[in-house]
Every structure is written in structure tokens, then in C-alpha cells.
Simulated assay, not measured.
Amino acid sequence: MNVLLPALTAQLRAAAHPVGAACRCADPGTVLAERDDDATVVRHGDTIAKAHAPGTDPAGLSLRLATATRLPGILLAPLRPAAVTLHDRLVTFWPHGTPVDPDTPEAAPWEAAAGLLARLHLAPVPAGLPLMRGPAKAARAVRRLRAAGPHPAAEPVLRAWAALPAWARAQAPAPLARTLCHGDMHLGQLVRHPSDTGRWLLIDVDDLGVGDPAWDLARPAAWYACGLLPPGEWSRFLAAYREEGGPAVPSAGDPWPALDVPARALTVQTAALAIAKSLVQQRPLDEAEQAVIDSCVRMSRIPPELTERCAQ
């Protein structure tokens, strides 16, 4: 029995209402995400409780929460300044926001996402903030693929990983990268909240930290390179980031020398997770997953020394 979920829901209900106030919410608690090795997220009314992944560093999470509190208009701030411990898991509480609607991709807020990233990248880096975890998540996805079992699509994905420069596989940002980064940027990390006049805000501080800002642009860049993001939407995103003075790419000219390696790493990460999940779920790969794997096939033919030169 999952003892965490009932206890988390009870904590959430208490956090959502003033002491002594009756609960008149329609739902007792809606589970938004639940994985034993990752976060469990529950909603009750307008409040979210997040039990962070097992082994989350308390000091690192505390610094990340403080950073979100200090950057209004960029990051959604937690409802409480510190995490609580529940069944050996760190738990934080957040206001509920309206996410991007996945059923209306034509209305995706690419300009807003780019502007938020640029402003985040230009913000001062708080003292002691840990490394952002983008590169570490790519390496973890590859380990998960290797542990998942045999699959005919795994070989080109692992070859594409091996073709990356050694520093990109080292689970840490490139040397001298000292920018405040989100660490896991995609459109699911944006919400609107009434307390901030309905503007888009970034959420999820678990991977926030110091690193190379190109990793925050890597997922849309990878989607564009794989044919999953139309050129017009990529151009809007890139132009909006540059207009805000974002430091990840030059203000004009070719952005790919800065984006190429992180985008390749995110392509491998996406493909590795797709294969691992398809094995667990005993299903074939879908069209989008196959497009990412096809990109890995092309990437695997590029020698590491050429990729290294392109990134310099």
C-alpha cells in the first residue's frame, strides 16, 4: 500500500484551508502525478502539494525555493518558504495555476516561454545554488534505457549518445557556465496564476541551478531539428528570446554552434525515455517517438570530434 498518498492528501487539505475552516471543495484530492522514483503531485482546490523525488537534497531544495520566492514575475513562488518531511519525502506547497492547453498547440505561448527564460538567465545567481540538472537528467535517461532491456531502436540512440563530446555526457554543465537556469524547460512548465495578473510563470524548481543556458533552449531546438516543431514556431521562440537579451545564443546570426550539443543530448534523452517507457508499457513507439529516434540514427553518424568543434 502506498502510505505516502493518503498522508500527503491529508497534509494538502490542511494547507488548503485556514485552521478551523470547513472544506467545501468538490474534490477530496486529485493526483496529478505519481511515480515511486519521482515526484508525487496532488491538487486540492487551489493548492498543490508536491512530494519531491526520494533522495532530494534538503539544502539544495531550500535554496531553490528561496530563488523562486525572490523572482516574482518569472517563477511561481511556493506558498511556504520551506519544505516539510512526510514519510522520508520532502513536501512543498504551491498555488495552482492554469497550464498550457495541449489540445490547442497553435496557441502555445512560445514568446512568453522565451521571454521568461531570457529573464531567468539574466537574473543574478544566488550564492550556493546547486548545479542545474539538465545534463544529469540526460545521463540518467541513458542509464534507464540500458537497464530497460533489449529493443531494436536502442542501438542508434546509444551510438548518438557516444557521439557527443565527453563533457556533454559528464552529468554536469560545461565548465565556466555560471548562468541561472531552469534545467527542465518545456511548455508543461508554464502556468497562469491570477495573483500575477494572469501572466505566464515558470514552475518546477527541482532542476533549477547554475549552468549553461543553452540547455534550457535545447528541447524546442531538438523538436525543431527532429521536425516536431514547425519552423515558424521555432523562429518566434528564438526571436523572442533574443529580443529579451537572452545570453544563451548570439543576438544575431547562427544560433546552432551554441545549441547543437545540448539539443543532441535532449534528443537522446527523449528517445531513451520513449524506448524505456514503451518497453514497460509493452506498446509500439508512436510517430513522434520514432521521429526522435530517426534523428538519433542521423546523429550517430557524426564523430565526436566534429561535434566538439561545432560547439567551440
Score class of each variant (00 low, 15 high):
46 D>Q: 15
50 K>W: 02
50 K>E: 00
51 A>M: 13
53 A>E: 10
57 D>H: 06
58 P>E: 11
60 G>C: 13
61 L>F: 08
62 S>L: 09
62 S>K: 11
64 R>F: 07
64 R>V: 01
66 A>M: 12
67 T>L: 15
67 T>N: 14
68 A>T: 08
69 T>V: 15
69 T>Y: 04
69 T>R: 15
71 L>G: 09
72 P>M: 12
73 G>S: 11
74 I>G: 15
74 I>E: 15
77 A>Y: 01
79 L>C: 10
80 R>F: 00
80 R>D: 13
82 A>D: 15
83 A>G: 08
84 V>P: 03
85 T>I: 14
86 L>K: 10
89 R>T: 08
89 R>F: 01
89 R>I: 04
91 V>I: 12
92 T>M: 05
92 T>W: 02
92 T>P: 15
94 W>L: 10
96 H>P: 02
97 G>L: 03
97 G>Q: 03
98 T>E: 15
99 P>G: 04
99 P>W: 00
101 D>E: 10
102 P>N: 06
102 P>A: 06
107 A>H: 12
113 A>T: 06
113 A>V: 05
116 L>T: 00
116 L>Q: 02
117 L>C: 11
117 L>M: 11
119 R>D: 10
119 R>S: 05
120 L>M: 14
120 L>D: 05
122 L>T: 09
124 P>N: 09
125 V>A: 15
126 P>M: 12
127 A>E: 14
129 L>H: 06
132 M>V: 04
133 R>F: 01
133 R>N: 05
134 G>V: 01
135 P>T: 03
136 A>D: 07
136 A>V: 05
138 A>D: 08
141 A>M: 04
142 V>S: 01
150 P>T: 01
151 H>G: 00
152 P>K: 00
154 A>G: 04
155 E>K: 14
155 E>M: 13
155 E>Y: 03
157 V>K: 02
157 V>Q: 00
160 A>M: 10
161 W>S: 03
161 W>Q: 02
162 A>P: 13
163 A>E: 03
163 A>G: 06
166 A>D: 15
166 A>I: 05
166 A>N: 09
169 R>L: 13
169 R>C: 09
169 R>K: 08
170 A>K: 07
170 A>M: 09
